[in-house]
Design a protein around this nucleic acid. Structure first.
Lengths: 419, 419
DNA sequence: TCATTTAATTCAACCACTGAACAAATAGCG
DNA sequence: CGCTATTTGTTCAGTGGTTGAATTAAATGA
């Protein structure tokens, strides 16, 4: 059977809302202990885990035994030295266990990467090509061959791929179908079906779908969640050709009632502003989208590739080009007005500028902060940080791969029972 | 000791993120079974609960025995008739067990109510009075005497108050201090300390604080969550003198990183619009706040009490008053632009109009839906419902009381161990 | 009246956690 | 070098709570 699950599958609720049966106890404690090992900055000992979780040392030992047997955890080799007493044996996530395959289709590149349990990127490949003139079938065919290469690389490193996730710059529905990817020119593309001929991406590993399709901004936010400053709540704004956002609330990606949250690019900044492709008027994209910035910067005709435009803008702004700087200030103001709305609504303490915006942070941030300061009711007591994303250009692919391994960390029992 | 917890205490995470110890199993299953009994529309039998939870009938019987012993559940008297076989004994939430005390301080009234486990309002009192000229100390003193009456009423009905929650139209911090309640004229009011002389509101019942202070819009949203259409995601907009909102995501109130979410009244509609008290420009309150509507309707000098203004507006609009209708259309448009932002961001499927807006729904909704239709990217596939709140004017008080009993339903073990 | 059917309880078995005792491994100190 | 203090990790009897099957309870219908 070749079931491909909907995008909601990326972020399963760790705690079961359903029945708590006998064995759930062990399942929950496996997740708890593994989660602590993953979150620790130094390899923790069994005793330390017991102390911080509240479990008994005996229980932790039993749980860890299961995790080691399942190749999810290994004992750190250079035993971390402590003061007195029997030396602790540090536990780390296994580097040779399951891994995640992350894929990305974007306007001007395809990307694939392999991330191991610890979050280390073990393989990474980017193929630049303008995909707008390419049919979805052909684009996904090329993607499948890149994925096959990545799979081979994983095998070579002794990793077992536990699943894959694909990021797309558009709206994805529950069945993995791309309903609309305006900047790619896709509409109603049944990604799972088109990939059906490429076995490595459509197998089902014991109930867990081999491939999850998701919005690129969501995956980039997930990547930032795990690569950046730990759990918490933040808004991750991806400035690509369009503007998308991933919303992380209390350490979990919020997808919305139907999986279509984060369409920040079409939040109205000026309700009577210029008309937008979406049918509205004065959307944020009209003020801070890549085309809008380039046009305001006098580079509309320069025909820069979408992925180099932000760095070019950053260069020019760094050189003191007044027009470019003004264009970025205006974009920053529009972003600031929009972010102020979001912060008033959600009380977030952090805004992450990702995608093309990351490089432009120094020129966007001042106006953003000024608008936030002016328009957010609680700004005086509740400061908001605006910072660039820590992941690079292909954050979505890394986030996609990360989402696969994070699912294993959140629910290790599934992986263990697979053995 | 007179600890009063912060507002976050209203909505504890049902599933423990921490250690899952031996006894947690029973705790979780108590919550699971009680939750199903509470959510069922007909009194379920033990067998039915076993079937839908996945637990064994034996386990459900044991769990139910605990719940009955703890006065949380009773067997429904008129045994619901089934076809053949031994008749099932229906289980219902006890009407004589714990109850919640809900309190509200608003601009022009004080309210108190008592809600039992089943969510039935068993006592309700509203005292109208303009509280703007009254000092916080005096206002809370009056509130305490109303609360004492409510407590006596609860005793008379055989109910045991398990806690209290107080709704305030302003920003409340973690310590229960009202940082800012602009329409009430309060700033930095330490509610817990001012209530310290009123024992019934400051006792601590085995670690659970006797009183939780929270934003009124949050509590109204909670009330709607439990009185209205079950769990899900929605935005509840409270149109009082100011405009607040409660955000319910996946059946849980979202409070924000610091507890100050939902300040929808200060989302900018037109960034260069008229200046607002908050220091920003063109905030929603400038277009759809009560003063703005009254002034646009030509009733600025009419000096209507704040709580009767909405019904008066509804009457006039119903009579065909063109000016009033136009004012409401304009407010609806502004609300629609703002809600479109929210829906683009969060992908909510329902918007509930509460407070004064409830009565005005017929005149606000068309413009709201039009703006949503035009500006929400996914509106074509993902319809948004705009409906009036089901709770009446004192939704916050009922929601406050409900939040107390919902906490017991979410974590019955705490209540049972108290016995 | 009796077979049928569904509900609820009882009870031995079992699973996973608990707590204490114990073994292992090291540093510090005389 | 040997002893003690100290901390880590394991072993093991004990226990709480769920499991599954058997049993009892209480109705309907032929």
């Amino acid at each position: 059977m070749t079931t491909v699950w909907h995008c909601q599958g990326v972020n399963p609720t760790a705690a079961p809302a359903g029945a708590v049966r006998q064995g759930s106890l062990r399942e929950l404690n496996l997740a708890l202990v593994l989660g602590r090992i993953a979150a620790a900055d130094r390899p923790p000992s069994r005793a330390a885990l017991a102390a911080e979780t509240g479990l008994t040392r005996a229980t932790v030992s039993a749980v860890v035994e299961d995790l080691v047997a399942g190749r999810l955890v290994t004992e750190a080799e250079p035993t971390p030295r402590a003061g007195a007493g029997r030396p602790a044996r540090g536990l780390v996530l296994a580097g040779d266990g399951p891994a995640g395959l992350g894929l990305e289709v974007n306007v001007d590149y395809l990307a694939a990467c392999v991330v191991d349990l610890a979050g280390t990127v073990r393989h990474h490949a980017v193929h630049r090509a303008d995909l707008r003139p390419v049919s979805p079938t052909d684009a996904l065919g090329r993607l499948a061959s890149i994925a096959a290469t990545a799979r081979a690389a994983a095998d070579a490193e002794g990793l077992t791929l536990a699943g894959a996730a694909l990021g797309v710059p558009g709206l994805v529905d529950d069945a993995g179908r791309v309903r609309l990817a305006p900047n790619l020119g896709w509409r109603d593309v049944p990604v799972p079906q088109l990939l059906a001929g490429h076995p490595p991406l459509t197998e089902t590993v014991d109930g867990v779908p081999a491939l999850v399709v998701d919005n690129e901004a969501n995956l980039a936010a997930l990547g930032e969640l795990h690569a950046g400053a730990g759990p918490g709540s933040f808004l991750h704004i991806s400035g690509e050709v369009g503007i998308g956002a991933g919303i992380v609330l209390d350490g979990a990606l919020y997808r919305g009632a139907r999986g279509w949250s984060g369409e920040i690019g079409h939040i109205p900044v000026r309700p009577d502003g210029p008309p937008c492709r979406c049918g509205g008027r004065g959307c944020l994209e009209q003020y801070a989208g890549q085309e809008a910035i380039l046009s305001a910067a006098g580079l509309a005709g320069a025909d820069l590739p979408a992925d180099t435009a932000p760095t070019r803008l950053a260069e020019l702004a760094g050189d003191g080009e007044a027009t470019v700087r003004r264009a970025l200030r205006e974009a920053g103001t529009a972003l600031g007005v929009t972010v102020a709305s979001v912060v008033n609504l959600l009380d977030l303490d952090t805004v992450v500028l990702g995608g093309g915006y990351a490089a432009l942070t120094p020129w966007l941030r001042p106006q953003m902060l000024a608008e936030i300061e002016r328009r957010v009711l609680t700004a005086a007591w509740a400061p908001v940080t605006v910072r660039p994303a820590t992941l690079g250009a292909t954050a979505a692919a890394v986030g996609a791969a990360g989402s696969v391994v994070r699912r294993i960390i959140a629910r290790p029992a599934g992986w263990l029972s697979r053995l």
